[in-house]
Design a protein around this nucleic acid. Structure first.
Length: 873
RNA sequence: GGGGGCAUAGCUCAGUUGGUUAGAGCGCUUGCUUGACAUGCAAGAGGUCGCAGAUUCGAGUUCUGCUGUUCCCACCA
């Protein structure tokens, strides 16, 4: 093995080997239990960012864990065509070349998008591989490939036939820049400083009386078809039924009474513009008002705006306000902060308007989807996200699925030019089934990108065919994704899975947070604070990045990325690397045999017990998807227990003359390291496999090795506990040396008053080595240790360390007094507890016993410390 | 308007059925060319776990209220 950890030497090589060996592939095996994870398909809009890196790492960790446990583990990868997002990108690209969608035409434009897709799809796959993702590449799926398109059509037609998809004129969100509708979820609201324009609407035939209307969007005035007041409003009640004259336009519109008008808000008078406001649309329905659209698709005014026709909506507003003012209609302008909707892709201000679109009827689909979570067929991790899900699902409105875009699944509906009927079909048609006409035109629009994404858990496995894969791998086991797409995607997969497969799409939903920058800001292009995972991998290796994205992260919580964190993880990799080098080199020539063939030392039993705890706790944590905790356990075990203690303890043994002892130590070293590597493999697959291959008596890849199982027989609790006493001695001696400024290299003599002579004798060489001592003598009193000895009172006994001229009596007294104080306060605490009748009678017996033992120990220690202080006086 | 999250060491964060003397990384102090590793080793300093109550034998952990901060949903024109 190389002297320093250099991930570039082996990461790519190992990945290639894994891929070629076929161990990523999941093939139905009825002797195994399936475990399925569907990768949330990254958008082909660009390359992967840190958020993806975390998402993929979590999935990879889970799938590798399950694979090692013997499940038939399928992690199915894919990419998403991301209809609007990609289209925006490609339009940007062609605009730079002086081209446009129109100039290229539908075919030409789509050709450009496919080229884009090829480029980014390839890049994304490369990135996933660099990260170490163990997905089944033979199943790589793109949401616009034939397999998915077939599923989309099947679902569309089925929903249509059930009456759950319909076409209707309703208020939708319109992006004037992308020139398409958006679903409610695709609109982001942000508070903006706007204005309230107060405008006089004169009552017809009365030049004195007017209603003062307050509006934030005066330019929609041309579409006003009524003015509403609250029917209970004493100020205006008498005017209901009369008419007002629309200023500038000079059109007569009715005054209606409607509870929508809030008496407390503004002037209490609302202009009603059914074509451009969702609430007004409802009012319009109630009062049978005409719907007048005043804007074109690009946000300019149409012929309804009269002389303002052709102006951009905001330019029109400016001029109109000027005219209202000069006409004497404008009362005043008040500043008003209000929320304005923006397109989630291009940021343009959304225009609500009436349009004829395709919708999915949500009411019937939502109910079973709510039940699935209520009755725990699906569990959110952490649980709190179920609440967010309920809230959305219980208030969901019909889903607008048609988009005026070209990139996406085209709506499978044809309109007959002759009989006028609409035909919905799973396959392309050229002839009207009703009248035989060939005069057919397919709906121009495509489907919302989330429509196909909603089918992902089963479209990828062959739906609508009854495939063997579907039967075996569906429902999937866990979906890993961020909280930002619960509505867009998770919710829609749930109702889709239930509706079309009659089974929930997954059993657990593991939700993670966002990866933010060092300052806690969202990583974004505009801020320029994004960090490219590939660059980090190049610098530190994939394992370091992976570990940094998992360690210390709690499910559902945001986390910060920082180079410092990755560096710390790289140091951990380096630690693992070097410890392994030591094990491999240090055990060369030794006979590595099963540990059961040796008489284990106290240190051996201690580390083996620690390993058992790690196995138990890590497995438990992973089963609960607590990846951060699992990583922390392994970090501590590997660094503190294995490296700092066990390796150091075992060094003298490896140098021993006793061959059996040497072989024993070597075997334990290899045994513990091998198990630790297996436990670490799901998180840091590269380094663990590279080392595993260099260990004695291993073959093949660690990837397919069996995951360690907890073995209670190897958990030597008592031995481990008593060995902790040895560690106490070592720590105490080191501390004393530091306190009295004794160079660590200076060997000291130890006088120990203890009942555990055998234990200490058995571990003498370790104590001498690690404490930096030259001899151990057992004594029965402080006097035997001579003068100028520093005293450490420990649970295992009292240690006297002669320090000669280095000892400052006053300092030693102060030190002992400090220790006395500490022990005294502990005694007070334990005493208080044990004097509490409630504690004695209600707390578990074990706890009470432990507390009593602790108290006795502290009392004993206090006696010894007191005695020592007295002897110094 | 409704609902969450977070508030623990100087900084970034863990702490999941309530139960050892509350932890880690980074930073800080002191000392170490200890034969795997200075990307390291050893010893330390540093916390009234946001505030006020409640439940309990026992609360960082449960409940209520409050303060600060942040996010999501709704969108009164």
């Amino acid at each position: 093995m190389e002297k320093t950890y250099n991930p570039r030497d082996f990461e790519d090589r190992l990945y290639k080997e894994w891929e070629e060996s076929g161990c990523f592939k999941a093939v139905r095996d009825d002797n195994k239990i399936p475990f399925t994870v569907m990768m949330p398909p990254p958008n082909i809009t660009g390359q992967l960012h840190m958020g993806h890196a975390m998402d993929e790492t979590m999935q990879d960790a889970v799938i590798r864990f399950k694979r090692m446990q013997g499940y038939c583990a399928l992690w199915l990868p894919g990419t998403d065509h991301a209809s609007i997002a990609t289209e925006v990108k490609v339009v940007e690209q062609i605009t730079k070349e002086g081209l446009s969608k129109e100039s290229l035409g539908r075919e030409g434009f789509l050709k450009r998008v496919w080229a884009w897709k090829d480029k980014y799809n390839t890049r994304i796959v490369e990135q996933l591989k660099k990260l170490g993702s163990s997905c089944d590449w033979s199943r790589l799926t793109f949401t616009m490939e034939e397999k998915c398109s077939r599923a989309v059509r099947e679902v569309f037609v089925n929903l249509y036939n059930k009456g759950l998809i319909y076409r209707g004129s309703r208020i939708i969100n319109w992006c004037p820049n992308c020139k398409t509708t958006l679903s409610d979820e695709e609109v982001n609201y942000a508070e903006e400083a706007g204005s309230f324009w107060h405008i006089k609407y004169f009552v017809e035939g009365d030049n004195e009386t007017f209603l003062e209307v307050a509006t934030t969007r005066p330019e929609t005035m041309f579409g006003d078809t009524a003015v509403a007041v609250n029917p209970d409003d004493k100020r205006y009640k008498h005017l209901i039924g009369k008419k007002v004259i629309l200023p500038v336009v000079n059109k007569s519109i009715p005054i209606v009474g409607d509870k929508h008008a809030d008496m407390e808000f503004g002037t209490g008078v609302v202009k009603i513009t059914p074509a451009h406001d969702p609430n007004d649309f409802e009012v319009g329905l109630r009062h049978n008002l005409p719907v007048v659209r005043v804007m074109n698709d690009d946000g300019t005014m149409n012929e309804q705006a009269g002389k303002y026709k052709g102006l951009d909506r905001y330019e029109c507003r400016k001029q109109l306000v000027k005219d209202l003012k000069s006409g004497g209609f404008l009362v005043n302008i008040q500043p008003h902060a209000h929320n304005v909707g923006h397109c989630y892709r291009c940021g343009s201000t959304i225009e609500p308007l009436v349009s004829r679109q395709w919708f999915v009827k949500m009411e019937k689909l939502a109910r079973p989807a709510i039940d699935a979570v209520t009755y725990k067929k699906i569990t959110f991790v952490p649980e709190r996200f179920a609440k967010i899900y309920y809230n959305w699902m219980e208030n969901v409105k019909d889903w607008c699925i048609s988009r005026q875009l070209w990139w996406g699944h085209r709506i499978p509906v044809w309109y007959c030019g002759d009989c006028g009927k609409e035909i919905v079909s799973k396959t392309d048609i050229t002839e009207c089934p009703h009248c035989g006409s060939k005069n057919l035109t397919q709906d121009e629009d495509v489907l919302d990108t989330w429509f196909s994404a909603a089918l992902w858990p089963f479209s990828t496995l062959g739906y609508p065919d009854d495939t063997s894969d579907l039967e075996y791998f569906y429902p999937t086991d866990v979906l890993v994704t961020g909280y930002d797409i619960i509505f867009f995607w998770v919710a829609r997969m749930i109702f889709s899975g239930i509706e079309h497969m009659r089974k929930v799409p997954f059993r657990d939903v593991l939700i993670h947070g966002l990866v933010r920058d060092e300052k806690g800001r969202k990583m974004s292009k505009s801020l320029g604070n994004g960090v490219d995972p590939l660059e980090v991998i190049d610098k530190y290796g994939a394992d370091s990045l992976r570990f940094s994205l998992l360690q210390g992260v709690a499910p559902g919580n945001d986390t910060r990325y920082s180079d410092a964190k990755v560096e710390a993880c790289r140091n951990f990799m380096n630690k693992i690397w070097n410890a392994s080098r030591f094990v491999i080199m240090g055990t060369e020539g030794a006979k590595i045999k099963p540990i059961s063939e040796f008489r284990l030392s106290a240190a051996d039993k201690w580390i083996i017990s620690k390993l058992q705890s790690a196995i138990r706790d890590v497995t438990l944590a992973l089963n609960k998807f607590e990846l951060g905790i699992a990583c922390q356990i392994m970090y501590d075990f590997m660094w503190s227990d294995f490296c700092d203690w066990y390796i150091e303890l075992v060094k003298p043994v490896l140098k021993s003359e006793d061959e059996v002892k040497r072989d024993g130590a070597a075997s334990v070293l290899v045994f513990v390291l091998e198990n630790a590597l297996k436990l670490l493999h799901p998180f840091i697959p590269f380094i663990t496999d590279e080392i595993y291959r260099n260990l004695p008596n291993t073959s093949g890849t660690i990837m397919t090795a069996e995951y360690p199982r907890y073995n209670a027989k190897l958990n030597y609790k008592k031995d481990a506990q008593s060995f902790a006493g040895i560690m106490d001695i070592i720590t105490a001696v080191r501390a004393v040396k530091t306190e009295v400024n004794c160079p660590p290299s200076r060997k000291v003599r130890l006088f120990i008053h203890t009942d555990s002579k055998r234990l200490i004798n058995a571990n003498e060489s370790s104590v001498l080595k690690l404490a930096g001592a030259k001899e151990i003598k057992f004594v029965n009193s402080a006097e035997e240790a001579g003068e100028n000895a520093v005293t450490k009172v420990l649970a295992i006994g009292t240690v006297y360390i002669p320090m000669g001229e280095l000892v400052d009596i006053e300092k030693e007294k102060a030190r002992l007094s400090a220790e006395l104080e500490k022990v005294t306060s502990e005694i007070a605490r334990a005493d208080g507890k044990l004097n509490n009748q409630g504690f004695i009678s209600k707390a578990p017996k074990k706890l009470v016993d432990d507390e009593r033992a602790k108290l006795n120990k502290f009392i004993e220690m206090r006696e010894k410390i007191l005695k020592q202080i007295n002897s110094l006086n």
